[in-house]
Design a protein around this nucleic acid. Sequence first.
DNA 1: GGTGAGCGGATAGTGTTACTCTCCATAAGG
DNA 2: CCTTATGGAGAGTAACACTATCCGCTCACC
Lengths: 217, 217
Amino acid sequence: MRLAELSRATEVPPATIKWYLREGLLPKGEPTARNQAQYDDVHVRRLRLIRALVDIGGLTTQEARAILTVVDDPDASIDEVVGAAHGALARVPDTDIDPAALTQVDRFLASRGWTVTPDSPARVELAGIVRAMAQLSPGQDPSDAALVAGLAPYADAIDQLAAAEVAELPHDVPRDVLVEQVVLGTVLAERLIGSLRRLAQESAFLSRYVAPSDTDS
Amino acid sequence: MRLAELSRATEVPPATIKWYLREGLLPKGEPTARNQAQYDDVHVRRLRLIRALVDIGGLTTQEARAILTVVDDPDASIDEVVGAAHGALARVPDTDIDPAALTQVDRFLASRGWTVTPDSPARVELAGIVRAMAQLSPGQDPSDAALVAGLAPYADAIDQLAAAEVAELPHDVPRDVLVEQVVLGTVLAERLIGSLRRLAQESAFLSRYVAPSDTDS
DNA sequence: GGTGAGCGGATAGTGTTACTCTCCATAAGG
DNA sequence: CCTTATGGAGAGTAACACTATCCGCTCACC
């Protein structure tokens, strides 16, 4: 398979494939001559993975490359792959984070029994979200426990989900297949959950009018 | 309050505030002279909302403005506000979507009893995600029902969540406060759920080693 | 064996986004 | 009065993700 065929198979423009090759997102093809190279299923698959991470996952190409580097490292553990994916997904604020918000987050994590490393990107990201929500909600203090208590319904729903996802990981598949599924399960599933929630929300809002409940004014 | 004070109060650089004013994201202050204007709490709050939507929600300024325009329209209903937020959050593919994936999505929606408009951005987005997952999962057909069946655990968790969120909307607050909360509950909560899930995942992965279960090889 | 389309690699250019800088007439403050 | 600050406008900038052009080489067909 040559570059043009790879392009046709994946609907990615040749110029873009060339750029991915240069950027190190896509491994080089097997050279058959000075200006000829062979590509195969691995490249098709990798190209689709890149587009999924970038187009759907919303990652930058640099973030995608960081993940793929770990995916390609045969010595990297599953936890390291997950860590790379989490690092790419978290939007950590560039400014210093509010210590009060961080304290609330840590208290919340403890109440949930969730144990994470102190420099977990998601922990810092959550502190930023809590702070923003505190500033914009009627109760204004980021150290207000009521705000963090409001996270409980979300955490309840997520608790079972994350546990099930981790437990359901197959352990009889080759490493390269497994790590790819883990990346998809982390990055794509996050967008998936988002669209499902919006779909459920939309439906819930629609049914407020179709079948007004007793809470209607 | 002058622009420099507004800047200090919100930690947003003056030049950025000026740009938001030009872009129509932030309403102009009350002019007191040819080169002097007064800003107040409304501006502080709006500025924080903009930063939350952009920095945390990951929206572009254009998307944020689209939402804020609806928020500021006193004639816009809550559903219109939610629709604007949903439109900004969905990353709809620019190419035509796979009809097979769309059929699967519609079947899934029907099985869930979720009713949405056909041009719902989340519906199209979900079709794109389903297609990408189908291409990258062992079972390769986007018209494979097994893939969509795999959405059930996610939908179960989300179902109760979205219903609770809509039901818990207060109906005794002024419109401007309510719509802001709706926007936050839609946009920020999506990021919130993401970080919570990653936190739960990280914890679940850690405990695989701390307390290895019988499924360990 | 010739030849013209296609290949690949490299370099430079483009469009978008989100600011950031500079300028300037005008106003505020000691 | 005079230095400093203000706000509006326009140009400039940095990052990102491609996209276009060039060029020597080679493969397929005649």
